[in-house]
Design a protein around this nucleic acid. Structure first.
Lengths: 186, 186
DNA sequence: TTGTAATATAATCGC
DNA sequence: GCGATTATATTACT
């Protein structure tokens, strides 16, 4: 971390370091601040109470919450490189060990069990998707009722389906361009 | 496949079967359309001219035309509905064709590439956020300079961060209530 | 291993 | 600025 950034990040730690952000400017002439870090927890409706409580308990017990403030969405490689501060992670020597560590971490965090759509459900979803890839809440609810799925699952499905469509399109576009650049055999 | 599902899936095949999904609802046509196509012109500073030209070039290879004076980011369905003056669009006979047309258009329509903040940037932002979740323009500019980011990115970050905080708080509140209602096992 | 459901969050729109 | 959505990138599971 650069010296500049250290100066900035010292703020939250109340270090007596000189800092180029003035307190006044950071406070923005005293605006409301109502953040209670302890209150942040994720709601997992598909977990029953006992399970939720257990997860919470584990998170409190285990020193693995240090990444809650840091984006989990990073390049795995970069991530691995940059996680030098995580002692527990560093202790994992083999890839397998690290995988296990990560898996346990995710288990403690709680993740909705993967939904396995049936063939008929997919068929209907695909048919609707062909006609409208952006169904509104009403259509999604209709689908949810008819297919016996949560509306949330429908929404995620369409989201992922759009991403897939886009990916496929990008790839085909790339192919077209590539072929146009090398019209002859190659 | 059940009778219900057949009713649904018939849609994409244009079968004259009675169907409990209305065409309007599937197409999302039963929603209000409130855009004024003539007045919409979005500025995309991150698309420089060369890039635009390249995109245009790609568009020329495909049965897609470019749209310089339409919203770059709208609901494709709404968008498609309101572009009745577009001759190419009118040439698309079937709903599917129109959807495809519209869909491809939206791919070329620009969206700012997702910014990937670095760990150190997030760290600083989080530290400032803890102290002040509503930084004024001056603090945002300071941060922008120090973190080598656009002030705009900073602003959006704080906006999303506040939303996240709110969400987390709501969820934890919900959990508390839920647990207080079912304090025993089960 | 691949495909994809799920997740987190940056970006966008309409108010 | 907010709430609601969408896009995007990544993770993790089958």
């Amino acid at each position: 971390m650069s010296a500049e950034l250290q100066k900035v990040s010292c703020l939250a730690e109340n270090k007596p370091t000189a800092c180029s952000f003035s307190i006044e400017s950071i406070l923005g002439l005293d605006k409301k601040k109502d953040l209670n870090p302890a209150s942040i927890r994720t709601y997992r409706p598909w977990m029953d109470n006992s399970c939720s409580r257990e997860v919470t308990a584990h998170n409190w017990r285990l020193p693995i919450i240090r990444y809650d403030n840091i984006p989990l969405q990073v390049h795995p490689v970069k991530h691995a490189i940059e996680r030098e501060g995580d002692a527990q992670y560093e202790q994992c020597q083999t890839t397998t060990e690290r995988m296990t560590y990560k898996r346990e971490l995710s288990w403690y965090r709680g993740r909705r069990p993967r939904t396995a759509f049936t063939r008929s459900q997919i068929e209907v979803l695909e048919n609707v998707f062909r006609v409208n890839s952006y169904p509104g809440i009403d259509v999604r609810e209709e689908l949810a009722n008819k297919l016996s799925l949560d509306e949330d699952r429908i929404q995620i499905w369409f989201q992922n389906r759009r991403a897939k469509m886009k990916r496929c399109h990008r790839e085909s576009q790339f192919l077209i361009v590539k072929e146009s650049l090398t019209p002859q055999e190659q």
